[in-house]
């Protein structure tokens, strides 16, 4: 975020600053919150950065409807195609590297060099997950040896609509690290951005919208994490929830609400997560169902 003075060209005199209106991302479009509410987002030192929409439970409901609608097409797309689209997201991120580095620096109070490094790590994380799209089935699925004249094959299938509470402490790298593993396998996602640092997430939505990612596959909400988590955890049409960004105590409550329709729940790690470390497969396999097929050997 540059200050108005920094953008002033001395030759042309003072220029009016053009402020960005941050919006939600639901179903491939950028609406304001249905409630009309916004809240102030500040940088790490408390300086005002922008107003972000404060989504309501109805926005969460609309986002789930959009995610459900997108699920058939996205889960039915070939793994190769999903990988290409995710790789495209990384390409688009690369093109806006400076903007994201500036937003991450402001949000997390980092030096320019450190913010740049985190942004690069986030882009590399997209590429890493994009590569997994057509490989994860070979690692977690396969042929099973059975004592009978059958081919017995297990394949992973996406769980469905996944609600994701993004980590509060890593506005871009953390977000990418929880979002990419959900969608790469064919799930669709409703993401609640970090409450105090939602701007990188809302800008990421603009990248997703221009990367051939079908509308509704990722829906980004900003606002009170607790306020949005409750209806999402209780929602009967959400199949899984990632509680990465929830505080420990409400997380227990959310798990209880999620139990009603047997949602898959990924609990927050009690000791915290180092988002920069190599992630492993856990976040992908947490939102996969194994389908096993028995087929007679025709001999």
């Amino acid at each position: 975020m540059s200050t108005p003075e920094a953008r002033t060209s001395p030759a042309r005199g003072a220029r009016l600053s053009v402020l960005k209106t941050y919006k939600l991302y639901v179903g491939g479009t950028f609406p304001r919150s249905e409630s009309g509410r916004v809240y102030e987002v500040t940088d790490a030192k408390g300086q005002w950065l922008a107003n972000a929409p404060r989504a309501s439970r109805k926005d969460a409901r609309d986002a789930v409807v959009a995610a459900r609608k997108a699920f058939g097409g996205w889960s039915g797309a070939t793994a190769y195609n999903r990988g290409q689209i995710l790789y495209r997201v990384a390409e688009m991120l690369e093109g806006r590297r400076e903007q994201f580095a500036a937003e991450v620096a402001a949000a997390e109070g980092l030096s320019k060099a450190k913010a740049q490094a985190r942004t690069d790590a986030a882009i590399d994380r997209w590429v890493w997950y994009a590569g997994w799209s057509d490989k994860v089935a070979q690692v977690v699925g396969g042929g099973n040896p059975v004592a009978g004249p059958f081919f017995n094959l297990s394949t992973p299938e996406p769980t469905g609509v996944v609600a994701v509470l993004a980590p509060q402490n890593a506005s871009l790298l953390g977000l990418v690290s929880v979002l990419a593993p959900v969608i790469v396998t064919g799930n669709t996602a409703v993401v609640v951005a970090a409450q105090d640092a939602p701007l990188p997430a809302l800008s990421l939505a603009e990248v997703l919208a221009t990367s051939d990612l079908p509308g509704g596959v990722v829906n980004v909400l900003s606002g009170g994490t607790a306020e949005l988590a409750r209806p999402l955890a209780a929602h009967q049409d959400v199949n899984a929830i990632d509680l990465a960004g929830a505080d420990p105590e409400p997380a227990t409550e959310l798990e209880r609400a999620a139990a009603d329709n047997l949602k898959r729940v990924l609990r927050p790690a009690p000791e915290g997560v180092d988002w920069a470390a190599e992630p492993g497969l856990e976040r992908m396999t947490a939102f996969l169902e194994t389908k096993t097929v028995w087929h007679p050997i025709g001999a």
Binding site: V64, R68, A234, H235, Q236, D237
Partner: peptide, 8 residues
């Protein structure tokens, strides 16, 4: 008090 879905 919970949102329902087409599964129900």
């Amino acid at each position: 008090g919970r949102y329902s879905g087409p599964d129900y």
